[in-house]
Amino acid sequence: MSEKVKDLRGTRLSAADLESKDTITFRGRPNAKYAWSAGIAYTKYLEELKNGRIVGRRCRQCDRVLVPPRMFCEQCFRATDEWVYIKGTGKINTYSISYLDADANRIKTPILVAVVDLDGASPGIGILHKLGNVDIEKIHVGMPVQAVWKPANERKGSVTDILYFEPIKEK
């Protein structure tokens, strides 16, 4: 704001004002529904998750193995070349502990969230998922983890066919 300007523009409204009967407000809710095709790359990705396997795509030009898979390499801007099966193990790239649900409501039992760099994919190629069966105090960047899958008959071809990633026990 310029010191030359003396008038402040705008009228504050409180939450109570917005709800009160003497304020004229209107309510609405969109009733739009969608059905998405998973596309070429993700259809294969999801089918293989149903089989209990993680699959990526290799670009032979930059020699990266890409997860989630795509039919084109966004860096080389050419078609990727082949499907590559990835182990269900990896290392925690970063993690967070969420006390908010998807609508920003407070929750008591936190959701443990991580980007997991997958073994067999190129360095820095991670996926977003959850952590489970882990002591919160012991989670750390670089922690080796493995996918815990739903039982085969409960998988439906979704990223949630992996329940979460858990620490790999020291042998």
């Binding site: 970063t94 908010l100 649900d101 998807a102 980007v115």
Partner: peptide, 27 residues
Amino acid sequence: FRTIWDPIITRPLNPNLVWIFALEMNR
């Protein structure tokens, strides 16, 4: 913000937008 996520591979995890900032901040 729930509708900004990829519907195929991210939304099924029920993400909150603050997750990605927390992940970035921690890294």
